[in-house]
Write a protein that binds this DNA or RNA. Structure first.
Lengths: 222, 222
DNA sequence: GACATCCTCCATAAATCCATGGAATATTGT
DNA sequence: ACAATATTCCATGGATTTATGGAGGATGTC
């Protein structure tokens, strides 16, 4: 029976990584971390969590091996432990969407109907190269700085209404944000439509773009 | 704030799938189901669970969308909901092994040292085609029947000691079982060595073999 | 060295999960 | 219709998890 105990210990160790994925708040934190490293207070604020609660969730993620930390002076920056973690997160959401019936209604309620105004990564690359579209990154500036689609303009969605003049009048806009379930690009496209602009949305976002090993530009590349 | 609530609802839906992966017992059940469909009582017996407990865990897996059921008379057969679930499970274990420090000691305590007597899928295919090795499936017969490496002999590890005469004397044996963390092939190789046979182990097992889309033979192919 | 900042650790109450008996349900065979 | 089998549903006590204040540690500034 020592063997059964050792087997249980191994599977319980795996389960610790599963536990990290078993809370919606922790998944929101992972989602943010997939965009680049962030200090605890920024994560707590963005995810709408009490600082202590966010810290506790981050400890859980760290014990599960999904995130790592780096100290920079008084701040501790969390990041994903590797690209394989990002890949796991993406596959995890795909499987949940494909097989769990509760996901699609929740997605539709949060983001809106599925089919409307989407283009694939391949379409974006082709039409962007042909100069037919402008690519627009609507994430917060620090996420844009951590890595974005080459040539994309940065206008965070909160500033889009007042800065809409920065976009060319006639050219169609392709907006993107964090990933397949990020609301920002949805909001941006709705706002642009309301202002009479032609705009579509990249099907997914930076997370999937990076995992597809497509080119990424960072701010300090200048 | 209705938006935040809808966002939380979406991520909580994803988290339900994560919860399914957050218990060692459920992971053991997934591991068994990755070999083929099984009725509840067989799963409970093999996993060492009370029938009611096993049923409850299977309900959790089902609500998470990871498994599906089929009724056959009075029995209910559970199976993985798709190959993507198997792929998620394999990636999940890889990430846990790569980044969570508790996994490797637990693996070593259960299975033994990592390096000893392993061959890759490619080596197995090449040496098997050259007639240099015999491939030996040491899983229970029903898992062999549900799909095995073409040409493999079936000798469940519990019967191996008494049926060792069925193996050729001089040819090296490559034993395999369920997957990378399955103990059966480890035990088989140790037993064969104790009997003075040349034997190695496939690095992983049937789960990874099938996901690699290598050829699979089923019993009723006769 | 005193002090401020950022984060983690600790304690606690509310909520949730787990394992397990016993009852209820669905299907098959007589 | 009745009994038998396989599984799920329900109730319950015990363990775990979650959110959140307050204390404590580490780092940097003056």
């Amino acid at each position: 029976m020592g063997d059964a105990a050792r087997k249980a210990a191994l599977y319980d160790a795996f389960a610790r990584t599963g536990k990290a994925l078993s809370s919606g708040k922790r998944l929101e934190l992972l989602d943010l971390l997939a965009q680049g490293e962030r200090p605890v207070d920024a994560l707590a604020r963005t995810a709408g969590l009490n600082l202590t609660t966010a810290s506790a969730h981050l400890q859980t993620l760290k014990q599960a091996g999904l995130v790592a930390t780096r100290r920079d002076g008084v701040r501790i920056h969390y990041r994903l432990a590797g690209d394989d973690v990002a890949a796991l997160y993406v596959l995890f959401r795909q499987v949940a969407q494909a097989h769990q019936s509760a996901v699609e209604p929740a997605r539709a309620a949060y983001l809106g109907p599925a089919d409307a105004h989407e283009v694939s990564r391949e379409e974006l690359l082709a039409r962007s190269a042909a100069g037919e579209v402008v690519v627009l990154d609507v994430r917060p500036v620090e996420e844009y700085a951590a890595g974005h689609i080459p040539g994309a303009l940065s206008v965070p969605v909160e500033e889009l209404a007042e800065r809409i003049a920065e976009l060319p009048q006639e050219t169609e806009v392709v907006a993107y944000c964090r990933g397949a379930y990020c609301v920002l690009a949805h909001d941006a496209v709705r706002l642009l439509h309301a202002r009479g602009r032609r705009a579509v949305r990249l099907t997914d976002g930076m997370l999937e773009w990076r995992l597809a090993e497509l080119p990424v530009e960072t701010e300090n590349a200048a």
